[in-house]
């Protein structure tokens, strides 16, 4: 299996939970909203963890680039985490407007981030780490 497919599939999984969370907030269904928002943020943090602790370090090690694309991806993770924070606060304060404002901002940021990963960074990773993909995917699957 290719890293591009494995990580891309995880993006789809996060997208789907995002859609559920956003929809339940827009309906004002706060009990569902709270749990789906938590599920979404957890899924995203899990995805970031796979990248930041396993995928990016290995890519940097083999390609020799620490200040390149992975640095930009980390920067965008940081920006997304601020928006998670705002979404969490909006759920606590039960504010539909604040939530949807933050979530829509996140959606655009997240999608252009994912596009860059899926169309460029992951294929580069597959290229650089050819031959050790299965082993690496095993490690990614083991991330809690």
């Amino acid at each position: 299996m290719q890293i591009t497919d494995f990580m891309g599939d995880d993006h789809r999984r996060c997208d789907n939970i995002f859609a559920t969370a956003e929809e339940s907030v827009s309906k004002g269904d706060w009990s569902v909203a709270e749990s789906s928002n938590t599920r979404f943020v957890d899924a995203m943090e899990h995805h970031f963890k796979m990248e930041e602790e396993t995928l990016f370090p290995r890519f940097e090690e083999v390609s020799g680039h620490t200040m390149g694309p992975t640095e930009v991806m980390r920067h965008e993770h940081k920006q997304m985490r601020q928006l998670f924070e705002q979404m969490n606060q909006a759920v606590t304060g039960q504010s539909v407007d604040d939530y949807l404002g933050a979530s829509e901002t996140l959606l655009i940021l997240m999608q252009q981030h994912n596009a860059k990963e899926e169309q460029m960074l992951y294929p580069m990773t597959d290229q650089v780490l050819a031959g050790e993909q299965d082993e690496l995917i095993g490690k990614l699957e083991a991330v809690e």
């Binding site: 920006q79 601020q82 949807l100 404002g101 829509e104």
Partner: peptide, 27 residues
């Protein structure tokens, strides 16, 4: 709206300020 948010966010981040003051896309 996304570009406005993105550029403001980058400005605040490089200044080390809290980004909560940056208006989101719907604002």
């Amino acid at each position: 709206p996304f570009l406005v948010w993105l550029h403001l966010n980058n400005l605040y981040q490089s200044a080390g300020e809290w980004q909560g003051n940056v208006p989101n896309v719907r604002q």
